[in-house]
Design a binder for these strands. Sequence first.
RNA 1: GCGGGCGUGGCGAAACUGGUAGACGCACGGCACUCAAAAUGCCGCUCCCAAAAGGAAUGUCGGUUCGAUUCCGACCGCCCGCACCA
Length: 889
Amino acid sequence: MFRPNSDWLLRRHPMSTERYNAREAEPRWQKVWDERGIFRTRNDDPRPKYYVLEMFPYPSGRIHIGHGRNYVMGDVVARFKRMKGFNVLHPMGWDAFGLPAENAAIERNTHPGVWTYENIATMREQLKLLGLSLDWSREIATCDPDYYGEQQRIFLEFLKNGFVYRKESEVNWDPVDNTVLANEQVIDGRGWRSGALVERRKLNQWFFRITALAQELLDGLDTLERWPDKVRLMQRNWIGRSEGLHVRFALANPPADAPAGSPADIKVYTTRPDTLFGASFLALSPGHPMAEQLAGGNPALAAFVEECRRGGTSTAEIETQEKMGFDTGLTVRHPLGGPDLPVYVANFVLMEYGTGAIFGCPAHDQRDLDFARKYGLTVTPVVLPPGADPASFAVADVAYDGEGTLYHSHFLDGLTIPEAKEAVAARLEDQRLGNEPVGERAVNFRLRDWGISRQRYWGCPIPVIHCAACGPVPVPEDQLPVRLPDDVTFDAPGNPLDRHPSWKHVACPQCGQPATRETDTMDTFVDSSWYFARFASEPGTRPLQKAAADHWLPVDQYIGGIEHAILHLLYSRFFTRTLKKIGRVSVEEPFAGLFTQGMIVHETYKDAAGKWLFPEEVERDAEGRPVKVGTGEPVTIGAPEKMSKSKKNVVPPEIVADTYGVDCARWFMLSDTPPERDSEWTSAGIEGAWRFVQRIWRLVGDVVALAGPAAPAEPGTFGEDALALRRASHKLAAQMADDIERLRFNVAVARVHAFANVFGDAVVAARRGGTVGDDLAFALHEAARFLVRAVAPSVPHLAEECWTVLGGDGLVAEAEWPASEPSLLAEDTVTLPIQINGKRRADITVPKAASPAEVESAVLALDAVVKALDGRPPKRIIVVPQRIVNVVA
RNA sequence: GCGGGCGUGGCGAAACUGGUAGACGCACGGCACUCAAAAUGCCGCUCCCAAAAGGAAUGUCGGUUCGAUUCCGACCGCCCGCACCA
């Protein structure tokens, strides 16, 4: 027979024994939100705007719970800002063009568009399952002609204004598949699908002139105060500004067979003109025009150049790669009268940086030193380290790149490095070779122009027509968008646009003669470089509207992975600045605040045969060992790794929603681990979140049982218990607001836990006390309502359910953030720890307003202090008001 | 090689601007309730000596300070980014 004892009754109430049924409640509230359209955003809303955006996903198929973390974080911010009175824009879209769709088309014989839109439909439902407060009416897909048509207009405006140009550039060419490969499709120098050795082939390609904005993009980083320092540093390094000197070296023995008009000098770029007297060779990149020309008449050199090209480009390969050179037999004059220098072609000189040629100063550059030692070139130190003896200082295997004074350097002797740089620059500027100065000061950037041509079908067509007579001609405005043809096949290698029977054949817009369309499409990074501006325009309107973009931009909080720290973010910054220059928007920087969240990782599982297993295929046997469900064969558990389909360590959102509810998943994703770090998904963690969700539900039920279903009127006075609870409630609201503003979700979660402990104690005490007075009833109701609103951004469905139980007006999703009364946040006493010689020995509670002198005398009266001083006067007493007291005995 | 970051209990972590180290949670142990279990609640949970009082401890060693997880130096370990950047 069921016979509860009194203790049980104290803690349990029939109301609170009902479990919160997330599976029933969550879809119900999602329907209510949807029907009332409360997440629809209007541009004419008078409230202050707040734009929160998570990096939009590529529609790869299905999402797993690992993808959900950044959407949940963004959603917490969006819901919080709504409660704080902002008109929030929180949209979602699809980065829908890209190579995987073409691969799927080849593998499954489907159209890339069909595959893409099917994936979008699946993933949209999965995202909706998470209860995100998104304005779905603004949803976009970059493969929509409405979207990419506007992108084509932007391209043509950029072209008109000189931000786009065409030049020859090398691509990875797969000679078996007859196709261009992306860098990630080249594995160990071979095509990923065909296995053929990849060739370098030159094609005419379109480029965005991002280097024209290099300085601007660099300077702009300083204004991005709400970006992680790490990302700004990565961009700064990527842009890579350096100041140096272009120096022209005259050829001492031009080759006899050189064609007329061949250059008579070699131009190098250097950041160390001060070391010019230590130069012992010149080196050309294998791609340097002079190297290529010389190779034409020299089979051995041609073979060397070819070998260099095959060398890998990965860092690991480069590190182990030995410095190699080929002596061309050419020599050049030293511009300051030193000995002539031999000219090599060397594998470590990059054509893309500087002028593709360097002078080597082995004593002060490690690469040059390695090279000089290998080829027996002279090593002359010209910078003397401070305190070193000029007679004995020598460089063996380690180049000296530190500070010092110049020596062995004629007119530079005795100068510091900066002085010597200046002196050389000044001297060479005045020297003439031909009609031009030998030296010219130069600012150099590592940043290169952005090549956007892709020899692919599933991308935004480049709106240009090639005419034999007129050259490249822009597609006229009234013929935009240039649509992708739907009737394409993927059964043959190469670009389907190129071999389509009719698509590319058009009349030249200028002369009317037969011409062909550009068959290249744009890099998908172009698509994602302005989508944030498209969201600003209301649905059904032109994709990029100045007024709308100016209203919403910049994005106040952008959230995404660190993997986009450089390219996507830099390209978006370039686009926004360029759009401003052509008058399409008014802002310069697209993202005022950036947050890069960590990934969700999960253990991996392998069976005895080494095959990956899904988490749900693994269970524990009687001894607690991991075994395969059904068979009982042993399972090996691997370290937590990024969730990925290939390793099967994924958790589908549907399973979590069915078992625990998505609020539990949301709460768990916000708990414990700082959001910028990787977080491990565990069953213990999600169960902990489930327990806490139930606990909130019980607390709310307890309050209604104790204090009635309706909030009582505020009484004039409060007892001590009620007041203490009120203080805790008001503090919670204030501190949590601060935590969420700073995106410290794990700290916010801990705070809610701590409050729930205090709240729970108050509930138990109230029940024990028998009757609940008006003041306590008010405080309990207030605590419940504060708690529910404080967690509403994180667990929105649960919050709605609780809000209803508590008799709240309307939806909690539309409620205001609880306002904290300043009088309840202020404490009138403070407890100070008392240290003796830096060790905590006691504490003391004093009025907050107590003067240091009052605190000091109270401290000196403490037993512990009297005992420690043993009659002697203290050497010193440090009173830090509101903080601590330290007595130095 | 270059650049950046991080080391705190069994685990995830907290600690504001140099001021009580370990909040909060997980795991674990004990207890209560139950025929039993689940659920829930209470207690304990860095280490040493323990009855208490103490002492040690934030990777290691040193420095600055009344006081250091926090600042400085050296070392050890781990992680991330990179395009040999002249």
